[in-house]
Amino acid sequence: MRQIILRVLLMLALGLSLFPIGILYAEDERPPPGFENTQLRLQLFPWSTEQMAAFFEARGFPASMIEALSAYCFFTASIKNKRNDVLQLDLANWEFVSQDGKLQRIPRSQWPPLWKKMNIPLASQSTFRWMLLPETLDFYADEKEGGNIVLRKTTAVFSLRAQFGLGENTEPVIATVNNLQCADAAGAIQSP
C-alpha cells in the first residue's frame, strides 16, 4: 500500500514538474498570425528590427541601408494557393488598418530611387528586391510563394484585409488577419 501511495505521489510530482514545460512548449508552438480556408493559406511572420538588421548585415548590406530599413516594420508573408485554378495576388488590394486608420505599405517602386540616392550596390538592391513579396502574381494551383511586406513602423495593433482575385465575374477571396503588431511595437518607435 505504502509503495502504491509513493508511486502515485511520484507520478503527481513528475506531472506537476512537466506542466510548466508543457505550457512553454505550447506557447512556442503558437502558429504565426494568419488565415486559412479551403482556398488559400496566408501566414505573416513579423521581424524585429534586430532580426532584420542581423539578417541584412550577414548578407553584406551597407550600414546606411540597414539604418534606413530599421525605420520600417517587416513581415514575411507566405501564401499558398489551395485551389485547382489561378489565385490572383495584387497588393494594391491589401489594406492594413488600425483604429487610427489605414497604415501605409511601402510598395516595391519606392525603394529603387532611395537606393540610387544612397549609392547602394546593385547586389544589395537585388537581394532586397527578391526578398519582397511581388506586387502582383498569379498563383498557380498548389503554388506557394513568399516575401516581405514593409510598413511604416507603428505601435498600433492592426488588421489586414487581403483580397485575392479569381478572375472576371467571380467573387474575390477575402482573407482577414486581426491583432497584428510590428515585432518590436512594445519599444519606443520613431518614424523617420
Partner: peptide
C-alpha cells in the same frame, strides 16, 4: 550573377 542583373532580365516568379 554578382550584381543580380542577369537574374533581373529573366524575371523569375521568385527564388
Amino acid at each position: 550573377d554578382l550584381d543580380g542583373q542577369v537574374t533581373e532580365a529573366w524575371k523569375p516568379r521568385g527564388l
